[in-house]
Write a protein that binds this DNA or RNA. Sequence first.
DNA 1: AATGTTTACGGAGGCCGTAAGCATG
DNA 2: CATGCTTACGGCCTCCGTAAACATT
Lengths: 311, 311
Amino acid sequence: MKLQQLRYLVEVAKQGLNVSEAAEKLHTSQPGISKQIRLLEDELGIQVFIRNGKRVVAVSEPGQQVLDIAGRILREAQNLKRVGDEFAREEEGELTIATTHTQARYALPTAVQAFLKRYPKVSLRIKQGNPIQICEMVVAGEADFAVATESIDQFSELTALDCYQWNRSVVAPLGHPILSLDHPLTLADIAAWPIVTYDYAFAGRNNINRAFELSGIEPNIVLTAIDTDVIKTYVGLGLGVGIIATMAFEPERDTQLGFVHAEHLFLPSTTRIGIRRDAYLRGFAYHFIELFAPHLTRQVVDRSMRGGDDE
Amino acid sequence: MKLQQLRYLVEVAKQGLNVSEAAEKLHTSQPGISKQIRLLEDELGIQVFIRNGKRVVAVSEPGQQVLDIAGRILREAQNLKRVGDEFAREEEGELTIATTHTQARYALPTAVQAFLKRYPKVSLRIKQGNPIQICEMVVAGEADFAVATESIDQFSELTALDCYQWNRSVVAPLGHPILSLDHPLTLADIAAWPIVTYDYAFAGRNNINRAFELSGIEPNIVLTAIDTDVIKTYVGLGLGVGIIATMAFEPERDTQLGFVHAEHLFLPSTTRIGIRRDAYLRGFAYHFIELFAPHLTRQVVDRSMRGGDDE
DNA sequence: AATGTTTACGGAGGCCGTAAGCATG
DNA sequence: CATGCTTACGGCCTCCGTAAACATT
């Protein structure tokens, strides 16, 4: 059994059971992969892949278990390399963060700036996606951790760390009636206008829905956007009033918009970091997390990754 | 990076940093191991072992982390083989149980008998040791699971499954006064005689100590044995009265001994099964566990191994 | 016919074992 | 001087890439 063979297996599975594509991705020849996979299958005494004649068409039941284990082995092998780098080149390396637009645009910049200054030799990468996608990136080992408000706790491979809580505000064009009410803002006040807010999968959109459902008021949502900038743009054009994350309102930039707090109308949302439990984090990765959420020290993060309940 | 290199690393560490001995254990040459370890160290960019001149004298800090990960990888590689066997040769294989004398002698035989009949092609091995030793065997992957009353929960790598509760009885030579008291047995009655019981590390000895401590009575323990047969032997010789596990009294064999229940004097002890959380268990291993403790179905065992808290 | 997998074969690289060299206690 | 690790070297194995045959859609 060789690590290469496991890599081949996993890559073939990842490429939708297409050996040729796997060969390309791995910069090697297709017959080589075929052969090594057969050798491994012989050694294990089982077929990992079910073939229809010469074509690979499915993963067998034992094959799925083999793939799971192989994935774990390969991830651990990656971790070995990281241990090496961690000690040989403390200040160098890569850090990949998967996150959503809102976090990347409004929450992360401060931490990123401090991080770049502290670790000039680390190449920081930010991958954007929707909450499901970014969690999958972390699960697949394509990112070191995820920062998101949704979905993290749906992945059992990930441990979720609370970073901060936030809530929503309403924005509208300057002079809009909703900005000069003679009473505290209510859901009914908002629902009196067309609403522009986040797409269903993003930024605590669930909490917005729930608030309206509970109140029995039917909101008229005319545009759902993935990011706040789009919302602000259309609110500025007069399409309706916007419900956005409070932190996403920038008084000095958003000069044509007015702003009303709506924290009392919606349940707060919690932004979390999601990390694979079996990942090996570089020292600077812990440091970034602490820059982003100071209460998440290395000790807290480690405890959460290693079981969390015992010890 | 190759699996062999990891095997070499781990074996050298296991053999007390002696490369030559590791070579012998692995049936290979010593220079080969030296070379491969150096190659791996070069690849990782760190020294796993600290050398004093040409002698290996210690494990470096990153080296320890490398060894931990390497161990995990090798265990997963073993698991891969087991998946193969599980599906290719369902009824064959090996099952190694680590346990103490008391369990092996009085608790396991029924399950073993049923198991041998059901799986004649599986070679069953029982390794005996003290509770610490048997837990270490499981941690090292030398046994599939441990059956013991003590220590299992002290190993964070293991998950502990309750099997059954039991308590103690007092044995004495036929005609001994303690066998014909006119009142229910008390600790004072026992402490009036020299006592023969288990060694401190075994069979819930803690619970015996605690009972006497709480009552403020000082017992006169004249012999501490590792196994019940030794205790019974010396009680038969008139050395004193014995405190043993109730299940270890065999009326048809122990004809020269009398027996008094003492369940009301001591806290019950719980016998548990200890399994590495990241182990891969063969189907027949689950079956054995269920034969031994019917409430421990495959589902229960799996849930306990995979985290226990979530899902 | 095109896509995709297996079989066949040759070359290069790497792993292992033997033997000799060299530190350390 | 004995133990133990390293360096040196040669053989063999195996892994990989090319080319061609074969199967499937």
